[in-house]
């Protein structure tokens, strides 16, 4: 998804550049306490890890492959603000050292792959943790869903940006369906890797998982004379107040998804086309879309193309969430059975 130079028009690049700069600045501020305690080395190593893992391809289907984006994973492991910095660093190094992703598109790339995946992933994870058993292990299914959802949402945001600043008018409903459909498949790979990484970390170093620090058990200490005492572990450095509900995560996701899709469809030329020609009337030419799981979504009957485009986005994300919740439920059932 590394956007090259000139893919979006200049205003879009500038706008996303400002968003990215603002997000990085805000994250620097929010993460400053964590960074003082754990040091920039940890963030740098996490960035090197994300970079290395992005080079591992997994098969998606039809002979193609995808790779991890890592935003949701990084957020669960090192917290959302450090994760934004980690992702921005990865993208900066890819752009500057490896010529991957355009320099003027850096802001776009950070916004799509660094900001949206991290925030959607993290807030969904935290929200799910609220409704799951209070164990460190719960973070695995929760973050898996976060990862699964984060990828299609980023794809949707890409579509939204295309609607605003794309060079050529193409049917946005189709683009959205193709992008989201495709990236749900990529998201499954993302989810599997995220789950595996987190289970490995929970098994060996549960104290490392930022998103689950508040779920840690107390320590038992034996002193020189053999006396035993109980001590609580280091408190989470920047724990969120526990009152936030599932709502935040889903709200963030839906606002991004629906809002951007609506925005996308509101683009006059796109609207004109979608309204006049496509209208989700099942035009036969859409070979790219036919293969995607979203191709059969029941939005055929809706005449208003604008609404229909937004609906495609929201439905895509909702379905992903439902599927994810089901997986989470299954995973926690299995985990309960095992323990």
């Amino acid at each position: 998804m590394h956007v090259p130079d000139g893919f979006f028009n200049a205003p879009t690049s500038v706008a996303t550049g400002l968003i990215a700069a603002g997000a990085v600045g805000f994250s620097l501020q929010r993460a400053s306490r964590e960074l003082r305690e754990t040091g920039p080395a940890l963030a740098g190593l996490t960035a090197a890890f994300v970079f290395a893992v992005q080079m591992v391809n997994f098969p998606v289907g039809a002979g193609t492959s995808g790779h991890l984006l890592g935003g949701a994973l990084a957020a669960a492991l090192v917290g959302p603000w450090t994760a934004v910095l980690v992702m921005a660093t990865v993208l900066l190094v890819q752009g500057l050292l490896f010529a991957d992703g355009g320099l003027t598109a850096l802001g776009t790339n950070i916004t799509l792959m660094g900001l949206i995946t991290v925030l959607v992933g993290y807030f969904l994870t935290r929200a799910l943790l609220k409704v799951m058993p209070r164990r460190v292990g719960s973070v695995v299914p929760a973050a898996t869903v976060g990862a699964l959802v984060s990828v299609p949402v980023a794809a949707l945001a890409f579509t939204g940006l295309y609607a605003i600043g794309g060079a050529v008018d193409i049917p946005l409903g189709k683009l959205a369906t193709a992008m989201v459909g495709w990236h749900i498949l990529v998201g499954i790979g993302e989810a599997v890797i995220t789950a595996a990484v987190l289970s490995a970390v929970v098994a060996t170093r549960p104290d490392l998982v930022y998103a689950a620090r508040h779920l840690q058990q107390d320590l038992v200490l034996v002193d020189a004379d053999g006396n035993t005492s109980t001590v609580s572990p280091d408190k989470p450095i920047a724990a969120k107040p526990a009152g936030r509900s599932l709502g935040i995560g889903i709200a963030v996701t839906l606002v991004v998804a629906g809002g951007l899709s609506l925005f996308a469809s509101a683009h006059p030329d796109g609207l004109e086309f979608v309204g006049a020609k496509l209208g989700f009337d099942g035009a036969a030419k859409d070979s790219a879309v036919a293969a995607s799981p979203l191709a059969d979504y029941g939005v055929h009957g809706i005449g208003n193309a604008q609404v229909s485009g937004a609906l495609a986005g929201i439905i895509g994300v909702l379905v992903t969430i439902v599927v994810g919740l089901a997986i989470a439920k299954l995973a926690s059932l299995r985990a309960n059975k095992a323990s």
């Binding site: 320590l219 200490l221 034996v222 002193d223 020189a224 004379d225 572990p233 280091d234």
Partner: peptide, 16 residues
């Protein structure tokens, strides 16, 4: 003197 320590994951490494 009498040094005792446990890691954050609960593993105690030094016992005096």
């Amino acid at each position: 003197e009498r040094l005792v320590f446990a890691y954050p994951d609960g593993r105690q490494a030094l016992f005096g």
